[in-house]
Computed example of a mutant assay.
Amino acid sequence: SLTDLPSLTLSLAIMMKLGLAPLHFWMPEVLQGISLPTGLILSTWQKIAPMALLIQTSHLINLNLAIALGLTSILVGGWGGISQTQLRKIMAFSSIGHLGWILIILKFDPQLSLINFILYLIMTSAMFLSLTNIFATKMLDVSISWSKTPMLTTTIMLILLSLAGLPPLTGFVPKLLISLELVKQNATLLAAAVMVISILALFFYLRLTYIVTMILPPNTPNSLLTWRTSNPTHSPTAIINVMALILLPVTPN
């Protein structure tokens, strides 16, 4: 009806700002063309205002629209990231997928959407800050960083698994809470569909983890010790990395 047109237009505009599929085409290309610190701002800080507006107007959003765009975002986020080698594009598709989870649960429980959005901000910030510290923009950059920053490279691997939603890491919390809430709302088929589609994203996270940890770069030095410069400690990165990994025990009931 005509009375639904303004709310529908507002919802679509906010979803385009967030980069939700199928209104996502600007996000991977823009994120690929900017630096990692700017990409961090675009993926986290720039999404706070539209997400706050979306949560406040959640009662106006059409349920079928939210579910359709949420499922599409999870599908596009997983499918688009499979063939990527550029880390910024991978993080862009990861963002699309995570926001799809948040959108699906928005009509059922806006407070749960807010919790999941905060966890998304933590995990995405941890990933971008870690990549910034090792100046990595491609998969190869991460794989060759093992000899210089082994602890940070290990942390990046764990953050990737957290983004994939594997227990007992922080990233398991959103998927667990959203799945339980959907089942509680008698949307079992929707919960099953969301989890099945998420296997696509799990594949490229595991693929990237495999490249980071299992593949040695060519022409590695044969010496036991490599030349390492003293890297300054980054306390914010360390704190947010810990939060991106071990928040599961403090999950609200």
Rank of each mutant, 00 (worst) to 15 (best):
S113L: 04
I115D: 06
I115F: 11
N116G: 15
N116V: 08
N116S: 14
F117I: 05
F117R: 06
F117M: 07
F117P: 06
I118G: 01
L119E: 08
L119D: 08
Y120F: 13
Y120T: 05
L121S: 11
I122E: 02
I122H: 04
S125L: 07
S125K: 03
F128M: 09
L129N: 06
S130P: 01
S130H: 01
T132W: 07
T132F: 06
N133Q: 15
I134W: 04
F135P: 00
T137E: 12
T137R: 06
K138E: 14
K138N: 14
M139C: 05
L140K: 12
D141K: 04
S143A: 15
I144V: 10
I144A: 08
I144E: 14
K148P: 00
K148W: 05
K148F: 10
P150T: 09
M151Q: 13
M151D: 10
L152T: 11
T153Q: 13
T154C: 10
I156M: 10
L158M: 12
L158V: 08
L158D: 01
L160T: 11
L160A: 10
L161Q: 05
L163D: 03
A164W: 00
G165W: 04
L166G: 05
P168Y: 06
T170K: 03
T170W: 02
T170R: 02
T170P: 04
G171D: 05
V173E: 01
P174T: 07
K175T: 06
L176T: 12
L176G: 03
L176Q: 07
L177R: 05
S179Y: 09
L180G: 00
L180T: 12
L180A: 13
E181Y: 00
E181R: 13
V183F: 14
K184H: 12
Q185A: 12
Q185T: 06
A187W: 07
A187T: 02
T188D: 10
T188Y: 10
L189Y: 15
L189K: 11
A192E: 04
A193P: 00
A193L: 15
V194W: 03
V194I: 11
I197F: 08
I197S: 06
S198V: 00
S198A: 12
S198P: 00
L200F: 15
L200I: 05
F204G: 00
F204D: 02
Y205Q: 01
T209Y: 13
V212H: 12
T213V: 10
M214H: 14
I215K: 14
L216D: 15
P218N: 07
N219P: 00
N219Y: 11
N222L: 15
S223I: 08
L224P: 06
L224Y: 12
